[in-house]
Simulated assay, not measured.
Amino acid sequence: MDEQQLDVVLVPLGLVVLGTYHVWLLFTILRDPYRTVIGLNALSRHQWVTSMMTDPYKNGVLAVQAIRNNIMASTLLATAAVTLSSLIGVFSSDNSTSKLLYGNRGSLCAAIKRLSISVCFLIAFLCNVQSIRCYAHVSFLITAPALKGKKDLIEYVSKTLNRGSFAWSLGLRAFYLSFALVLWIYGPIPMFACCCLTCFILYFLDTTTRITRDLHSKSFKERENEDVAESA
């Protein structure tokens, strides 16, 4: 098989591998959140919001500082994404630089590579901007006094905070995908190998051990028992 035929076979196959892994991850998060880091973090953030909003006058400064740190992290990723996308646009406008980076395999293939990388970084930028939007909204709501009869407000704030974190995770996944797309410049084989290696590494980063699940499960049960005792 020549290089063009490998592009047709290995590039879609690598994207299918990444897509299949993330479909499995989403299914696992919905069915068994304790098995994934994303699910456990979402439950932990719900507990954190509940703890902060039970006494906003005491914990307000701490809560706002934590949200500010998340906003700074999202801002950094958004800035990096839009900067890299702009640099790709500058390189694409220079024919000599384009030939140096993408090789002489044809204008169509080079345009597809440039477009794929640019779209990947733009998606990362939009996800991080959405994350900043949710975090900024939470920074106002989390200092509102939430009494025992205002559990709906706590649930809304925790869901908004989780939306911001999920958007940040999607933006980070777009950065992971960009590694494979950049390696596509050097050929379809490095791109496919990067997709497989990324899924292998992400599996160990996204899943939890039994010890971690037991610790979080015990913590959540203790918190539920405290809430029941307070309501009684």
Results as ranks from 00 to 15, higher is better:
105 R>L: 08
106 G>M: 03
106 G>Y: 05
107 S>H: 05
107 S>E: 15
107 S>G: 07
107 S>Y: 01
109 C>M: 09
110 A>S: 15
110 A>D: 10
111 A>Y: 07
112 I>D: 01
112 I>S: 02
113 K>F: 01
113 K>S: 04
114 R>K: 13
114 R>Q: 08
114 R>N: 02
115 L>M: 10
115 L>D: 05
115 L>C: 08
116 S>K: 04
117 I>R: 02
119 V>A: 11
120 C>S: 14
120 C>L: 10
121 F>I: 02
123 I>W: 07
123 I>T: 08
123 I>Q: 04
125 F>W: 06
126 L>G: 00
126 L>A: 13
128 N>C: 06
129 V>K: 00
129 V>W: 04
132 I>E: 10
133 R>N: 11
133 R>V: 13
133 R>F: 15
134 C>H: 09
136 A>P: 01
137 H>L: 13
138 V>P: 04
140 F>Y: 13
143 T>R: 13
143 T>S: 10
145 P>N: 11
145 P>A: 11
147 L>Y: 13
147 L>S: 14
149 G>Q: 14
150 K>W: 05
150 K>E: 15
150 K>Y: 10
152 D>A: 15
154 I>F: 01
155 E>T: 15
156 Y>K: 09
156 Y>A: 15
156 Y>R: 09
158 S>T: 07
158 S>P: 02
158 S>Q: 04
162 N>T: 11
163 R>T: 12
164 G>D: 08
164 G>A: 07
167 A>I: 00
167 A>G: 00
168 W>I: 00
168 W>M: 12
169 S>I: 09
171 G>C: 05
172 L>S: 11
172 L>G: 04
172 L>Q: 06
173 R>Q: 11
175 F>D: 01
176 Y>Q: 09
177 L>H: 08
178 S>P: 02
179 F>M: 09
179 F>Y: 12
